[in-house]
């Protein structure tokens, strides 16, 4: 369904006078997701996970530059296609409730999303109420403004706006953020259901446990590069993980090592070499100088000189 090869995204800005410089937010990202599959993209916050979603929809700010190969349904994805496909074939569940229009009642916003994705205006209100029911929201919620909702309700509204249409690729950007376990589990279950019904789901999240509960495969993202691609079953504490960053991330879960398992140094680099260099016990001058290539290993892949 979607295939991304060595994607990079940079932002240019003026530093001093007319001097222009570019900051690379995503250096090298590789992933692919096919239909009936949930691919989780997990990783450090600030690694550019949300940018990935914005890039696929073609809604990056104007000072952003993008390079790499994006293929959607076997065709190269151009900026023109993105504008046509977004909301129709590629839908986004955004990260925060600031994506809702604060001046419009939420029911109207869901209905509008339905109309934009091809539901007839007549049927859109009915579809809206159905969507609300699916997420266990009462009908009166449709007449509320976003500020009258709790964080969890707002999240369910955002999910409803994205899934009401007929999109084949769902980009879920942190759909379970700030939800209690029961509601989060329900949202995730719904995403799994969408995948089982033949859609492709790209689940962008920082919450590994949530991701593992529904994902088929996991792509681990750190400092602007993909460092590992693993099967969800590899995250089981038996040392199957290929990259030291994936292992550190897994060990830092509150239910596991939490603060006790932290490596001594914390900042993560985004210069030329491996993004995990300051953390890694195995780092060598080689890691500092060059970004490792992607290697296939044990039915997954990893980007590490030492793997």
């Amino acid at each position: 369904m979607l295939d991304i090869k060595s994607l990079s995204i940079g932002f240019s800005s003026y530093s001093f006078g007319l001097k222009k410089h570019t900051v690379l937010a995503i250096r090298s990202l590789d992933l692919s997701v096919s239909k009936k599959e949930v691919l989780a993209v997990v990783g450090q916050s600030g690694a550019g996970k949300s940018l990935l979603a914005h890039a696929l929809l073609g809604i990056l700010p104007r000072n952003a530059s993008l390079s790499g190969d994006l293929t959607f349904k076997g065709k190269k994805l151009t900026p023109k296609d993105m504008a046509l496909l977004r909301g129709r074939e590629i839908a986004l569940i955004p990260q925060s409730m600031t994506y809702l229009n604060p001046l419009l009642k939420v029911g109207v916003q869901i209905a509008r999303a339905a109309e934009l994705s091809g539901v007839s205006p007549k049927a859109s209100w009915k579809a809206t109420l159905e969507a609300l029911r699916r997420y266990r929201l009462e009908e009166k919620i449709a007449r509320r403004f976003p500020f009258q909702l709790s964080g969890g309700m707002a999240r369910r509204i955002l999910t409803a706006t994205a899934t009401i249409g007929k999109a084949d690729l769902i980009l879920a950007d942190e759909p379970t953020n700030g939800l209690d376990q029961a509601t989060a589990g329900e949202t995730l279950g719904h995403l799994r259901g969408l995948a089982d019904a033949g859609k492709a789901v790209l689940l962008i999240t920082h919450d590994i446990e949530a991701a593992l509960s529904i994902a088929d495969r996991v792509t681990v993202f750190c400092g602007g590069v993909t460092v590992e691609e693993a099967r969800a079953s590899d995250f089981n504490g038996s040392g199957k993980l290929r990259h030291p960053y994936s292992r550190a991330l897994w060990d830092a879960l509150p239910g596991r090592g939490f603060v006790k398992s932290l490596p001594a140094r914390s900042p993560i680099s985004s210069s030329g070499g491996c993004p995990f260099i300051f953390f890694c016990e195995k780092s060598t001058p080689l890691c500092e100088g060059s970004l490792p290539g992607i290697k296939n290993l044990n039915q997954g892949c990893v980007r590490c000189h030492h793997a």
Partner: peptide, 17 residues
């Protein structure tokens, strides 16, 4: 109030530490 609910496990552990 859900201070680290939007953060990855590693950053969460760093902040709480």
């Amino acid at each position: 109030d859900e201070m680290t609910s939007m953060l990855d496990a590693l950053t969460q552990a760093i902040i709480w530490k």
